[in-house]
């Protein structure tokens, strides 16, 4: 088998996609599914942070990752990438934004999006919700990771660590 591995030829993503495509139920069938993805992909690039049902957000994320990585690789002059952008993005000014703003911004990054679970509002439709956003956007952070170095447990563990090393040295 002198064949090259196909996996090596395809750009590798840092973000793992679902292998099975999700069924985004639609009365128009597969065509409607693509229309849905076009719509949310355009919205993602336009607003940079959107709120969706989890299924749709996760699916859009997979498409966005592949789409952005290929365009970043091929560059804005490539006819293939221009065709792809024309197909997936519904508004012309967003295509302009993609090539002139987003691709330079993400040139060094490994993955382009963040996905967060979003709590349901009660009472309401209790479907799993999600927030999908482009990285490095100008909004305040969705989740703040508070690292309190002087919390009780951190102080106790730090001192324990010190004592352990003193014991090791004295032995």
């Amino acid at each position: 088998m002198n064949q090259a591995k196909i996996l090596n030829l395809v750009a590798k993503l840092k973000h793992t996609n679902n292998i099975k495509p999700r069924k985004l139920k639609n009365y128009r069938g597969p065509e409607g599914r693509i229309a849905m993805l076009q719509k949310s992909l355009t919205a993602l690039l336009k607003y940079e942070r959107i709120e969706l049902n989890f299924n749709r957000a996760d699916e859009t994320r997979a498409y966005a990752e592949i789409f952005m990585s290929q365009i970043a690789k091929q560059g804005s002059q490539n006819q293939k990438s221009i065709d792809m952008a024309n197909f997936w993005i519904l508004e012309n000014q967003i295509i302009y934004k993609l090539f002139n703003v987003l691709v330079p911004r993400f040139s060094n990054d490994v993955s382009y999006t963040n996905l967060y679970h979003h709590p349901n509002v009660y009472p309401g439709i209790l479907r799993p919700k999600a927030i999908l956003e482009l990285k490095n956007n100008s909004f305040p952070k969705v989740s703040s990771s508070i690292k309190n170095q002087s919390s009780v447990e951190n102080i106790l563990l730090k001192e324990s660590h010190k004592r352990h090393f003193i014991d090791v040295i004295t032995q």
Binding site: I146, N148, Q149, S150, S151, V152
Partner: peptide, 9 residues
Amino acid sequence: TMAHSNKSP
């Protein structure tokens, strides 16, 4: 609160 221990130990 206990979460403010970095501001006032």
